[in-house]
Design a protein around this nucleic acid. Structure first.
Lengths: 226, 226
DNA sequence: GATTTAAAAATTGTATGCAATTTTTCTTTA
DNA sequence: TAAAGAAAAATTGCATACAATTTTTAAATC
C-alpha cells in the first residue's frame, strides 16, 4: 500500500509521536518526508477537515486536543454510533465475516493472556472495523471511522500506558460478549453491550487523565485562547 | 461573516451551480475568486476530506455523486443520526431553544402555505440545525452536519424541483410533529418521527430520480470507472 | 462514417520565492 | 529578578514556474 503523505503525517499522530497540542511545522515535515511545503500543506489541510488536527489561521496547525467535557461528548457520540454499527452487523454480517469475527476473538483471548498491549490495540481496531464493515452501510462506516479517528490519540494512550495492564482483559471480555451477541443475531443486546463497552473505555480514560494530571505532568489542556 | 475560499467553493456545490459529477477546474476557480491555484487546491482538498467532492489523483476533482444504493445507505445512516439528535434534544434543549423551535414551526407553517420552495429549504436547514444544537453534544452535531453536507446536493434538489410543489406541505407537517414531541420531552417519539421523516425524504428523492431518469436527461450516474 | 493514432492543448502535482505575520531571542527598564 | 519592549528569526500564506500527466483536437486509417 503506497502510504500517501496525508497518511504518513496522520501516522505521526496516531502512533503517538505527535501528541495533542503539538505543533505541526510545515518546513520540518517537508524535510522529513523529502517533499516541498506545498504537498505538506495540502495534507495538513485535509487532516484538519477530518478533525484530527486543528488549523488556526497564520498559526501552526496543532494536533487536536480535547478537554474532559469534549472527551465525554466524543465518547457519548461514538458509543451511539458504534452501538448502531453493532446492531446492524448483528443482522447483516455474512458467514465469512462471522467466521473472521470468531477467529478474532480467539486471537484476542491469546493476546489478552499474554498482556501484549500493542497487539491489543491493533485487535481493538480490527474488532471495531469488522463491525463497521458488517453493518453494510458505507456512510455509517465512514462516520464511525471518522469519529474514531478524532479520538484515537486518546484511546491509543489507554493501551500504551503501564497502569492499564491490569485492565487489559476487560476490553477483551467485552469484545467477546459483543461478538457473541452479534453472532447470535441479537441486535438489541449487541447494541447495549457496545454502548457499555465505550462508556467503560471513557471511564478508564478519565482515570488515566486524572492520574497523569496528578503526576503534575503537563496538564495538556486545550489552550484555545490567546 | 468572512466567507472563506473553502466556503465559497462549497457554496457553488450547495447552491447547485456545480452538480454531482461536475469537474472543479483549479485554474478557473482561481480566476473566478481572484486568487492563485495554491489556495484553491487547499480548499478543494479540504472539501474532499469532508466528502462533498471526490478527489482523484492526476484527474480533476468532481462533485461527489451517489448512485441509488449509496443514497439509500446515506439516508439510512442520516436517519439514525438525526433521530439520535432529536432524542437528545427532546431531553436537553433549554427554554430559549424551545421557544425558537416553536417560532420556527410557526414561520414554517406560513412558508408552506405560500409554497415558497426556497424558503422551505432554508427552513429545513434551520430546523435540523436547531436539533443538532439542542442535542448538546459537539461531536454529535459535527457528525450530523458532516453527514448532511455530503448529501445536500441531492436533498436540495428536492426542494427546488417543480414537481415537489404538491408535497411541500408534508415535510412541514412532519417537522411540526417532531417539534411537538421534542417540546413535550418525548425522546422516543421524536426519534421515531425523525426516522420516518428522513425515510420519507429518501422516497421522494428516489421518485425524483426516477422521473428525471425517465425524462431521458443525462442519467448522472456514478462513472467511477475509466 | 467510425475507429485508431498522433499531436496539441489543457490540467494537475510540486518546487521555489517572497511578503505578511507570528514566535522567539535579546535588550532595556523598573 | 521580573516585566516590557524591540529586534531577529522562524513560520505561514500565496503567487508563480515548470515538469508530468491527462484530455481534447486533429489527422490518418480501415
Amino acid at each position: 500500500m503506497p502510504h500517501t503523505l496525508r497518511q504518513k503525517i496522520a501516522d505521526l499522530v496516531l502512533n503517538g509521536e505527535l501528541k495533542p497540542g503539538d505543533r505541526l511545522d510545515e518546513h520540518s515535515l517537508a524535510e522529513r518526508f523529502g517533499v516541498s511545503r506545498t504537498p505538506v500543506r495540502e495534507a495538513i489541510r485535509q487532516l484538519g477537515a477530518s478533525g484530527l488536527i486543528e488549523i488556526r489561521p497564520r498559526r501552526s496547525a496543532v494536533v487536536r486536543s480535547f478537554d474532559r467535557a469534549e472527551l465525554d461528548e466524543a465518547f457519548e457520540a461514538m458509543g451511539e454510533i458504534e452501538a448502531l454499527c453493532a446492531a446492524r452487523a448483528a443482522v447483516r454480517m455474512n458467514e465469512a465475516e462471522r467466521l473472521r469475527l470468531r477467529a478474532l476473538i480467539a486471537t484476542s483471548e491469546d493476546i489478552s493472556a499474554r498482556t501484549d498491549r500493542s497487539a491489543a490495540l491493533e485487535m481493538d481496531f480490527e474488532f471495531h472495523g469488522l463491525l463497521h464493515d458488517g453493518a453494510r452501510n458505507w456512510m455509517l462506516k465512514t462516520v464511525a471511522e471518522e469519529t474514531r479517528l478524532k479520538i484515537t490519540p486518546y484511546s491509543a494512550a489507554l493501551f500504551t500506558m503501564e497502569s492499564y495492564n491490569a485492565d487489559l482483559d476487560r476490553p477483551h471480555r467485552q469484545h467477546a460478549g459483543i461478538a457473541e451477541a452479534v453472532l447470535e443475531g441479537d441486535a438489541e443486546r449487541a447494541s447495549t453491550l457496545m454502548r457499555e463497552h465505550i462508556a467503560q473505555a471513557l471511564i478508564s480514560l478519565q482515570k488515566f487523565f486524572d492520574d497523569t494530571a496528578a503526576r503534575s505532568d503537563a496538564p495538556k489542556v486545550k489552550d484555545r485562547s490567546r
